[in-house]
């Protein structure tokens, strides 16, 4: 079994969510288990009534870059949520919510998208990551 790819998804903007979803997809199709921990704004992106920023682009983008990114989205490019959904179909992708973020943001599991598989603590996430790579997005 390949080492898992573990992704801490901290950010909640469209471009960063997309970047993380592409890594998840790439690892999933190569047969690597993928584990995503949703923290703070990444967690809010999976919460239907708080995810307005998930349609925005981060401050990292230039004006031109932001316009091109928006064009690609308007042109029908698959969005981050759909990429994650497809990754879960094609491989082993487990998405969990950071327990501390759930507390701070006063969220309950029922508030989250059904793609989220459960709630997990940081220690459990790190233990499961083992010697595999961890990405922080």
């Amino acid at each position: 079994m390949d080492e898992p790819l573990s992704i801490v998804l901290f950010s909640g903007t469209d471009d960063r969510l997309t970047a993380a979803s592409l890594f998840a997809a790439g690892a999933a199709v190569l047969g690597r288990p993928v584990r995503i921990l949703l923290q703070y704004w990444g967690l809010e992106a999976f919460c239907a009534d708080r995810n307005a920023r998930a349609a925005e682009i981060s401050g990292d983008a230039s004006e031109t870059g932001a316009a091109l990114f928006a064009d690609a989205r308007a042109g029908g490019q698959v969005n981050w949520a759909e990429t994650l959904r497809q990754s879960k179909e094609l491989g082993e992708v487990e998405i969990s919510a950071c327990a501390q973020s759930m507390d701070v943001l006063k969220l309950q599991p029922a508030d989250l998208d059904p793609m989220v598989d459960g709630v997990e603590g940081i220690a459990g996430f790190l233990a499961a990551a083992g010697n595999g790579q961890i990405l922080f997005v």
Partner: peptide, 14 residues
């Protein structure tokens, strides 16, 4: 042809 990376690979696998 309308898909960005990794769309074509994901379509192939499916």
């Amino acid at each position: 042809r309308g898909s960005f990376c990794p769309g074509p690979l994901m379509e192939l696998i499916r």
